[in-house]
C-alpha cells in the first residue's frame, strides 16, 4: 500500500456527466461539482472474487443459452488483459458482459427494435481474470441497432462490460467497440469521450487470438483506475 495515491477519474479520458448530444444526460447528469473525499476503509476495499464460482458456460455466450441449436451470427473470441494504471495485472476480478444478438436485438423486455430474437442466444455472460490479469470469452458479434436519440440514430456494434478491480473507486462500466465501424463517427455516446480516450475503447482484430475454423479474435485491454498492485483482501 506504499504507493497509494488518491488518483481521480482522468477527465481528459472519461466522458463528462453532461453531454447534451446524448439527450438522456440532460435530465440525469448531476450539475454540482463533486465533493472530494479522502478514501476511508470502505473506499479502500470492494467485493473480492477469490472464491467466486463461475458457471461452466458463463464465459461462452455461444453455448450458455442453447435450446435447440447454435446461435446465428459470426462467432468471435474476445481476449485481453486487465491492469491498474501502473500496468500491474488485476487478477481474480470479475468481468460481466452483455450485448445485442447478431441482428441487433437485446433480450431485454423493453427493447422494441423490430429485429428477430435468437432463441439460442441470451447475450450475457461473465468471466474472471487469471493470475496474470488475462480474460477471455466467446460470443457472437453483436449487430448495430437503432435508438431514439435523434433521427436515424444507430448504435455502433458494441459489447457492454462491467468490472470491479481492487476497490470501489476502480469500478468501471464501459462498452467495447469494433475497428472500422462507420457508425462510430455518428454516435453521441462514443463521441462524448474526449479525443485522447476514444481509441482506447476500440478493440483490435488479432489473428493470434483468432481460433482456426472456429472464431475471429479481438483483443481489448482494460486499465482500471488505481495504483495499488494487489487488491485489498477483506476476507
Amino acid at each position: 500500500m506504499s504507493k497509494l495515491i488518491n488518483n481521480h477519474f482522468d477527465m481528459d479520458i472519461h466522458p463528462p456527466y453532461q453531454a447534451t448530444e446524448y439527450k438522456s444526460t440532460i435530465l440525469r447528469a448531476s450539475s454540482k461539482p463533486l465533493v472530494i473525499t479522502k478514501k476511508t476503509l470502505s473506499e479502500l476495499s470492494g467485493p473480492v472474487f477469490n472464491d467466486f464460482k463461475l458457471g461452466v458456460l458463463d464465459h461462452d455466450l455461444t453455448k450458455n443459452a442453447i435450446i435447440d441449436g447454435e446461435p446465428i451470427g459470426e462467432r468471435i473470441v474476445v481476449q485481453g488483459k486487465v491492469t491498474n494504471e501502473l500496468g500491474q495485472p488485476i487478477s481474480n476480478t470479475l468481468l460481466e458482459v452483455w450485448q445485442a444478438n447478431a441482428a441487433g436485438r437485446y433480450v431485454h423486455k423493453v427493447d422494441q427494435h423490430n429485429a428477430p430474437l435468437d432463441p439460442n442466444f441470451l447475450g450475457t455472460g461473465r468471466c474472471m481474470t487469471d493470475t496474470h490479469g488475462n480474460y477471455k470469452f466467446y460470443t457472437i458479434k453483436p449487430g448495430a441497432y437503432p435508438w431514439g436519440n435523434h433521427q436515424n440514430a444507430w448504435r455502433p456494434n458494441h459489447i457492454h462490460f462491467s468490472l470491479f478491480g481492487g476497490d470501489i473507486s476502480s469500478r468501471l462500466i464501459t462498452q467495447m467497440y469494433f475497428p472500422g465501424d462507420p457508425l462510430l463517427e455518428y454516435d453521441p455516446i462514443y463521441n462524448a469521450i474526449p479525443k485522447r480516450g476514444k481509441e482506447l475503447l476500440i478493440s483490435s482484430f488479432d489473428l493470434s487470438v483468432t481460433e482456426p475454423d472456429f472464431a475471429l479474435g479481438y483483443r481489448f485491454d482494460i486499465v482500471l483506475r488505481g495504483h495499488i498492485a494487489t487488491p485489498f483482501k477483506n476476507k
Binding site: F9, D10, I13, H14, P15, Y22, S24, T83, N84, E85, L86, G87, W98, A100, Y106, H108, V110, D111, H160, S162, L172, I173, T174, Q175, I189, Y190, I193, R196, G197, K198, L200, L201, I222, V223, L224, R225
Partner: peptide, 12 residues
C-alpha cells in the same frame, strides 16, 4: 497507463 474510458450502462 491511460484509464479505460467509462460508457453508460444503457437501458438493457
Amino acid at each position: 497507463k491511460q484509464q479505460t474510458p467509462s460508457q453508460t450502462i444503457g437501458p438493457y
